[in-house]
Structure formats: C-alpha cells, structure tokens
Computed example of a mutant assay.
Amino acid sequence: MASHRSPRHTPLPGQARPARVTVLSAAAAGAAVALVPAAPAGAEPDSQLSAATLNSRIDRLYEQAEVATEKYNGVAERTGKLREQVAHAQDGVARSQTEVNRLRDALGALAGAQYRSGGIDPAVTLMLTEDPDSYLAKAATLDRIGSRQLAKLRRLQSAQRVLGQRRTEAAGKLEQLAGLQQTLEQRKKDVRRKLAEARRLLARLSPEERASRDGRRSRAGGPGIGPGGSAPSSQRAAAAVAAAKSAVGRPYAWGAAGPGSFDCSGLTQWAYRQAGTSIPRTSQAQRSAGQQVPLGQARPGDLVIYRDDASHVAMYVGGGQVVHAPHPGAAVRYDPVGMLPVSAVTRP
C-alpha cells in the first residue's frame, strides 16, 4: 500500500524515527565489558574462596542476570509494539496533513477564481486563515458565505481539528518511546554488570573446576515424570519439540530469540513460532500462556518454568529431559527436568 506521508508535512519536534534497539550477542556483550570490574571493596579476596563458594556466587550472578534479561525482554517487547503505534500515529498525521492541504488548495482555487472575476470575497479570505474557527464563531457574518463555501470551511475546520489531535497523540507516543528506550539501556547495564562479575569469578576456577561445574546440571536429580508424558500433546507441540532439538549446540546470548542464538525464553518462543504458534516473549508471560499441568503429567512440548519468580524456562522433550538455553558461555543443551526448582508447567 502506498505511503500517505506528504512532502508538505512538517515533522513534529523530536520526530526523527527512533533507532532500532539492537540485541547484543554474547560476543558483543563481552566486548562491551572488556574491562572486568574489580571485586567490591572490603570483599574477601577471590584467592581465599573455595571452589564451592565461587560456584555459589557465580550461580547467584547468573540467576540475577537472567532476571534482568527477562525484564529487558519485557521492555523490548513493549518498545517494539509502541514503535508500531508511533509509526501508525505518524502516518495518521501525514494523512490528516494531506487532507488539510487538499481542502486549503480547493479554497485557494476558489479565491483565485474570484480574484480573476473582480476581487476576493472577504469571507473566502477568512476561510484561508490558519484559524477558521475564529470566523465561524461570528455567527452574524455567516450570511456572507454561500452554503457551498460554508460546507468547505466546515470540512477544513474538522480536518484541522483531527490533525491537531493526531499530532498530540503522536507526540505523546514518541515521549513514551523515549522513556522505554532509556529503560532498555538501564536493563542492558544491569545484565552487563552481573555477567562481567560472573566472568571475573569464573576466571578464578581451574580448568578442572570449570569442567566439573559444567557437568553439575547433567548429574542433577529431581522429580520424575509420569507415564503419560511420553508423547506430545499435539502436532504443534511435536513441531516445537523438533525445533528446540534442532537448536541444541547454538550459543546462549541474552536478549536473543534465534535463529543463531537464544536466551531461555527466546528459545521457547522461537521453537513455537516454527510450529506456527505465537507465545509471549518473557518466561513470566509464558507461564500463563496455556493450560497449567502437574509436573508428573508433563508431555513433550510443555514449558517448564523455574524458580518462584519464573526467571527461567525450558521445553520438556520427554524422558525426564528438557532442552534450554542455560546461561552465557553455554550452548543450548539437554538437562534433567529437575535441574532447578520447578514453579509451573504450561501447555501452550
């Protein structure tokens, strides 16, 4: 469909189109925080901490970073929707401006015809002012305008009123968008700071300790899955499972939703999108994106939500296993369903 933008439209103050909010990959995030922060003042030196203590602190930082990432994802989703609303509002301003221009051109043509025939009616001159309301308010002078001229003037009056309303709406949405973009930047800083501290602590572990850490979840125990959990609940669930399995080995990147990299909720959203189904972007919203079922009745394709704050999500794929995007530095992988405290199981 052709654009309604008019070259005669004067942009609103601050109406430059907002830059797209880009999602940092793990590599870009790493480059942005190349200067790893020092330990907090007064903290016990890392060299004096045991591997167990370091691992506990790293786990806590990853959990905090995941919470911050899901908050980032929520704001990013709202920003995308608001950006669409801004574009729609600006297009409405352009359409209204085009209509005002057309009506004023028609009145200008009327004035030109009157001038060539011996002079312009003062009423027509008033029609061409920026504020025809001031003329219409003077009811005593309306008899000086013919019915056709009056109808044109009223249409212009209405068009200018709509234009003003749409300009106000667009300006308000632009202001909201600027606020959300500022919030996004703060969320980015929160995630970067926590991931940088986690990398600093990881560097204190020996290669053997890091390898042992990577295998901890694979050895985790947890509640079992009942006998009804062997088959997907639907064809779309089966397609989502196939998509999630196809992503195994691709890297984690906070804020990413595929196809090359993922964070936890980005993976599950992408997998269901491949199955032709739309689910929300964040793990908190995904918890409510379908029917709640007991863990013992989980079936492949169900979303397993972890922690009370729903800050992590994985997809159950059968056999007591989930596929998920765990944390920075790790690839999408299989892990036991009981790797973390389960707070809910949702069947989209």
Rank of each mutant, 00 (worst) to 15 (best):
D309H: 06
H324E: 15
S96D: 08
V93K: 01
L177F: 10
A2R: 01
E63C: 10
A238V: 14
R17G: 09
K245D: 03
Q48I: 04
A220T: 11
V191A: 11
S25A: 05
V322S: 00
V21A: 04
G80V: 12
Q321I: 05
P280H: 04
A159Q: 06
F262L: 11
V342R: 04
R104I: 03
P336M: 03
S50G: 15
P11K: 05
R102D: 12
T22M: 10
D302N: 13
A275V: 05
A94G: 08
V21E: 01
A39K: 07
R287M: 06
Y316D: 13
S147Q: 04
T282V: 11
G222F: 12
A32M: 06
L184H: 12
V21P: 02
S246V: 04
D121E: 04
V313P: 05
G224R: 08
R217F: 09
G172V: 01
T10Y: 03
G226D: 13
L128S: 08
V293D: 05
A137R: 13
P122W: 12
L128K: 09
V313L: 08
L35F: 01
G146I: 09
A87P: 01
P336I: 12
L295T: 06
A344Y: 05
A123Y: 07
S3I: 03
I225H: 02
G276K: 02
A238G: 10
I120C: 11
Y272Q: 12
V313A: 05
I279P: 01
P294T: 01
A298I: 02
G146L: 09
I279S: 01
P232L: 01
R148L: 02
